[in-house]
């Protein structure tokens, strides 16, 4: 519950406060958000499986974000930033779907 509140507060704060993102970070924000979404879905699934561990969640959340941003950064340096970020989004999207399927099985039993 607290976690859901945290998400809501974050979204509201983002829209209301309008923080300025540093230009250096800006290109990596979308990818980082998708990676974090992946981590959250994984965490939700783990919770439904009854094996949720906050430590694992924190580590995987942060490492997901960092690795995703790193891949895009590297891609930009190599000149294949657009393609590589597409690849990252595709991979993360697949994982989000498979996690969502597991969650669905738990919640709807179907």
């Amino acid at each position: 519950m607290i976690a859901v509140l945290g998400l809501i507060v974050g979204v509201v704060a983002g829209f209301v406060v309008r923080p300025v993102v540093p230009t250096i970070v800006e290109p990596y924000l979308p990818i980082a958000v998708v990676a974090a979404l992946d981590a959250v879905f994984g965490g939700l699934r783990a919770m439904l499986d009854g094996i949720f561990d906050d430590k694992v969640f924190v580590v995987s959340f942060l490492s997901n974000v960092v690795v995703a941003a790193l891949i895009v950064f590297l891609g930009d340096k190599l000149g294949v930033g657009a393609q590589l970020s597409t690849g990252v989004v595709v991979v993360l999207g697949i994982r989000i779907f498979s996690n969502a399927a597991a969650i669905r099985r738990h919640v709807f039993r179907a």
């Binding site: 829209f15 923080p19 906050d54 924190v58």
Partner: peptide, 21 residues
């Protein structure tokens, strides 16, 4: 656990909102 997850989700929400905006 709830607090940590809430913090991370706050960050996620923030990033999401900034990006959407």
């Amino acid at each position: 656990a709830q607090l940590i997850v809430a913090l991370l989700l706050f960050v996620l929400g923030l990033g999401l909102a900034i990006q959407v905006r």
